[in-house]
C-alpha cells in the first residue's frame, strides 16, 4: 500500500523542502519507489534542491487541468532509479489547484509508487491544507524556537481536523522532525531542547537534524544533503528515514560535543 506523507510546518523557512528532498532520496536509496510533489505554487524550489530545475517542462497544475499527462510532468532523478518529482507551477495562480484534481493525481501515483511525499507551502491557508488533505502520515518540521513550535502545534491541530483521514474519523499519523538543532544554543537556553518541544507537541520525534553548513552547500549544488554521508546532517536524515521505516535508533547530534584540543585547532565541526 502506498503511503502519502505530507511534510509540513506552519512557519516558513524551517527546512520542509530540505527535509522532503533528503527523506525522499533516502527512501529511494533503500529501494522504495518514491515521488515528491511540490505544493508550493509560485515559489517552487524543491526542483532546485533536487537539482532538476532545468528539466521542468510541465507541472502539477498542468496535470490537474489536463494540459499534460502525469507521465510527461514527472521528472526522474538523475542519481537514483525509482525517485521522481512533480514540480509546482511558478507562474500560475495558487487557486488553480483543486481538491478533485490533486486527489486524482495522488490516486494515480498510488498505483506506481510506495511513497508519495508532499512538500507543503508555509502557512495555514488553503495551499497548506491542500498539501495535507490526502495524507496518511505527516512529518511536522519544527525549529527549536517558540514561534516555530507554536505554528507546528497549530498545524497538528489542522491535521487532526482538516484532512480526509480526519473527516473519515481516523487520524493522520504524525511524526516530529526537529531541524536546525544547535545543542550549544540549547545549552545557553537560547533555544528549546528536544524534550521541551516533544512535551509541548506531544507527538513522537522521528529525527533531529543539526544546524549544519553541509545543508546550504548541498542545496547550492542541487544534491540532497543525505547524499553527503560524511556530514552530520546527512547522517541525521539517514537515521530519520530508518526510524520512519520502523527501526529503533538512538538520537545523534543532540548533545553538545565537548571540543577537544584537536577539533579546536582544526576549526571544529565540518
Amino acid at each position: 500500500m502506498a503511503r502519502v506523507v505530507v511534510v509540513t510546518s506552519g512557519k516558513g523557512g524551517v527546512g520542509k523542502t530540505t527535509s522532503c528532498a533528503s527523506i525522499g532520496t533516502a527512501l529511494a536509496m533503500q529501494g522504495h519507489r518514491t515521488v515528491l510533489i511540490d505544493f508550493d505554487v509560485g515559489l517552487r524550489n524543491l526542483d532546485l534542491v533536487m537539482g532538476c530545475e532545468r528539466r521542468v517542462v510541465y507541472d502539477l497544475i498542468n496535470v490537474t487541468t489536463g494540459e499534460a499527462k502525469l507521465s510527461q510532468a514527472l521528472i526522474k532523478d538523475k542519481r537514483l532509479d525509482g525517485l521522481f518529482m512533480l514540480p509546482a507551477s511558478q507562474t500560475r495562480d495558487k487557486d488553480a489547484l483543486t481538491y478533485e484534481g490533486v486527489g486524482e493525481v495522488i490516486e494515480t501515483l498510488k498505483e506506481e509508487f510506495d511513497f508519495i511525499i508532499c512538500d507543503s507551502p508555509a502557512g495555514i491557508e488553503r495551499g497548506a491544507v491542500m498539501a495535507m488533505y490526502y495524507a496518511d502520515e505527516a512529518i511536522v518540521v519544527t525549529n527549536p524556537e517558540v514561534s516555530s513550535v507554536r505554528d507546528s502545534d497549530r498545524i497538528i491541530g489542522l491535521l487532526d481536523s482538516k484532512t480526509r483521514k480526519a473527516e473519515e474519523g481516523e487520524s493522520v499519523r504524525s511524526h516530529l522532525l526537529i531541524t536546525r538543532y544547535d545543542p550549544e544554543r540549547v545549552e545557553h537556553a537560547d533555544m528549546m531542547s528536544v524534550q521541551d518541544i516533544e512535551e509541548i507537541l506531544a507527538i513522537p520525534v522521528v529525527g533531529v537534524i543539526p544546524e549544519s553548513p553541509a545543508v546550504l552547500r548541498a542545496s547550492n549544488q542541487g544534491v540532497p544533503v543525505v547524499h553527503d554521508s560524511d556530514s552530520d546532517a546527512g547522517q541525521a536524515y539517514s537515521d530519520t528515514v530508518a526510524r520512519f521505516l520502523g527501526e529503533e535508533l538512538p538520537m545523534r547530534f543532540t548533545e553538545l560535543e565537548r571540543k577537544g584540543l584537536f577539533s579546536r585547532m582544526f576549526g571544529g565541526r565540518r
Binding site: I124, R150, D151, D153, I156, G157, D160, I200, L201, A202
Partner: peptide
C-alpha cells in the same frame, strides 16, 4: 482526549470540561 492545540477552542455549555491532555499556548 488529547492535547488542545493552538487555534483550537473548546466550549462545554452548561457543563464541566475535562481535558485529558495539555492545553497549549494559543
Amino acid at each position: 482526549r488529547g492535547t488542545v492545540r493552538s487555534g483550537q477552542q473548546i466550549y462545554a455549555s452548561c457543563a464541566d470540561l475535562v481535558i485529558l491532555g495539555a492545553v497549549n499556548e494559543g
